[in-house]
Design a protein around this nucleic acid. Structure first.
Lengths: 357, 357
DNA sequence: AGCCTTCGTCGAAGCGCTTCGACTATACGC
DNA sequence: GCGTATAGTCGAAGCGCTTCGACGAAGGCT
């Protein structure tokens, strides 16, 4: 009834307990013949090594923790995909992934968990440029790798979206459509100032690519709500009436922009093009028209994050893995050739559907 | 440097190792005074019990697994919220939650994981009415509880959305707005036939509430894509031109419906009301207008699922917990008073923005 | 031939905890 | 008063595994 132990395997294969262990882990050489006998015994018994016992004896639990901010802003389908991919990657390397949803504010909570010696390492999501958590983790002395990267990611493994490249790609695409006045809708100013990586890096990328294209960078901070999106958009259009395209960092605000555009009679993409800088397909397809968007490689990031960590745990001279992945452009219905902005203020058609919410 | 052990605590408190254990777990009486000394020693050392050792010795790992279908249909923000809540609930009861993303097709994979004795129990998401997984789990002999419920949930703990009630509530709300021809947009027929719980139960609820209100139930199956939504909507309106309100089961199709409605010049909610039967706020706010929706109690479900399982693990005479939670109606912009359908076919305003995708 | 490695195996000592049986001292019943 | 619980503590035996040291046999070197 209860699970077979290594001892039973050993008896059945007529070898010592330790030999079974060596055969299982390849820790010491075992003759071809013996190994065969042991394997046979194992699967006749349906043997699976006892994870806790193995962990206790070897001081390596083969469990890693995924640290993610509970109930955080902007958590959605993308993150789920990420988490799933991480769990799968862990599983395929023989590890387990535990979820530790928490905000870390002091060394306390986390240290308490770490001290339980349940996990070999920690994977951290959503890292800011100067994230205190990194210092904390280092002080605690637990192996970790991160998704996102701090300002100076000198000696830690990470995997992150290449926001600069993503923004450049998006803007380049808009320029290719003939747009010349392109605005960038960032996250809230507080995020930017707090060093939130996506915000800071995308801004840098935008600045860079517009300058390189000989254009004037126009950008705005904007809270992550539809209302903020509307307000900022209105102000933006008043200040820069010739803007024909928008690259946006946050989806809720984007919806607000679309509302506001509709209210002033602008059609998307005829009168205004919008490209969302980081949107999963699921979300991008919810709007009308569906959003042309840069889609984050969530699954790859999750996988990469886990592998970076595990490599670090297993190899002694772990070469640091640090990887940047750009988002992939998926053209949907929200982008088109640049209109002549002058012909736009009084749209060819009619007043659109008013706000209803 | 390395974590303190129970032995060090014992030495420091001048008691036997076992006494520390008793003090920690309350397994046997320990005098007030001794207990104080032990506590003091513990937090001077920053002691945390070693999870693996504890698990090995007690045969209870205090780890539970969340089994969820990898890369499944319809996975999004709602599910993430659910997972987060589950992890938090586990944590607050002193448990850890590991993620096991997998499709179970045979007893094989799962049994292999179970045999590692890593987890005390399993929480299963997304259960169909006649889910083979339940039989499997029972055969494997691992404690489990489920989110969703099978056709005859006689003796297993579960937590589920009350789809019947939710649908009734939604339709009642529409009826209250004056709608008399209300259609129900279900998931795909295959899901229904496969016994997918939400699909089957919502259908039952719809049938019931419409009949009770003296209305004729109109319903359609519909694939989970915008295209399917458009097609089914067109067919529906041709067959039942007087339909003024829709209760929809799936978000992608809903977007298709909104497109199709816009194409024929219908405004939402002036010409057509839509209530989404299971939508998280995040998604419902992405559309234009934002969707009035029944919002699932994801967090509560996650928490309830975990607690059901843990109760079952800890109490000997575990009274079976079986709970149904209805979704909460959140009115947004997609519902309004019933129009006179006769006045609708040639809408007051203009041809809307065409399809762009 | 003699010596040193390497291969293949065994037995035993833990890893850090829980739990069982045993023991002492005190309280209780009648 | 004596048997009998009960509170409070201890020591030791595991839980199922990894890993260390040891040892014989086989092979390579000079």
């Amino acid at each position: 009834m209860s699970a077979p132990t290594m001892e039973e395997v050993a008896r059945r294969a007529n070898v010592a307990l330790s030999t079974v262990s060596y055969a299982l882990n390849g820790t010491r050489p075992v003759s071809e013949e013996t190994r065969m006998r042991i394997w046979a015994a194992m699967d006749e018994l349906g043997y699976q090594p006892h994870a806790l016992a193995r962990g206790l004896a070897s001081k390596r639990s083969r469990i890693i923790a995924l640290l993610f901010p509970a109930l955080s802003r902007g958590f959605g389908a993308t993150e789920l995909e990420f988490v799933t991919a991480a769990a799968e990657a862990a599983q395929s390397r023989g590890y387990h992934l535990v979820l530790w949803p928490m905000e870390i504010h002091g060394v306390g909570d986390l240290q308490q968990l770490i001290r339980q010696s349940l996990v070999d390492g920690v994977l951290v999501m959503e890292v800011r440029l100067n994230d205190e958590r990194i210092e904390l983790l280092r002080r605690i002395g637990v192996p970790f790798s991160i998704i996102g990267r701090p300002a100076a990611p000198s000696d830690i493994g990470f995997a992150d979206i290449d926001f600069e490249q993503t923004t450049r790609d998006a803007v380049t695409y808009l320029v290719g459509l003939g747009h010349r006045q392109i605005a960038f809708l960032n996250h809230a100013e507080e995020s930017f100032n707090a060093g939130y990586g996506p915000s800071v890096r995308a801004a840098a990328g935008f600045e860079q690519v517009t300058r390189a294209a000989g254009l004037t960078p126009i950008s705005r901070f904007c809270g992550d709500t539809a209302l903020a999106g509307r307000e900022v958009f209105e102000e933006l259009i008043r200040a820069h009436p010739k803007v024909t395209a928008l690259a946006t960092m946050n989806e809720r605000a984007t919806v607000g922009v679309m509302q506001a555009a509709a209210e002033r009679g602008w059609r998307i993409p005829d009168d205004l093009s919008i490209v969302s800088l980081v949107s999963s397909a699921r979300v991008a397809e919810m709007t009308l028209p569906p959003l042309t968007a840069m889609t984050p490689p969530s699954a790859e990031l999750g996988q990469l994050g886990v592998e970076t960590l595990i490599d670090q745990l297993e190899e002694d001279n772990h070469e640091l893995v640090q990887r940047l992945l750009p988002c992939r452009l998926v053209v949907r219905g929200s982008t088109g050739p640049s209109p002549d902005p002058a012909l736009r203020s009084h749209p060819k058609s009619v007043p659109p559907q008013g706000p209803t919410g």
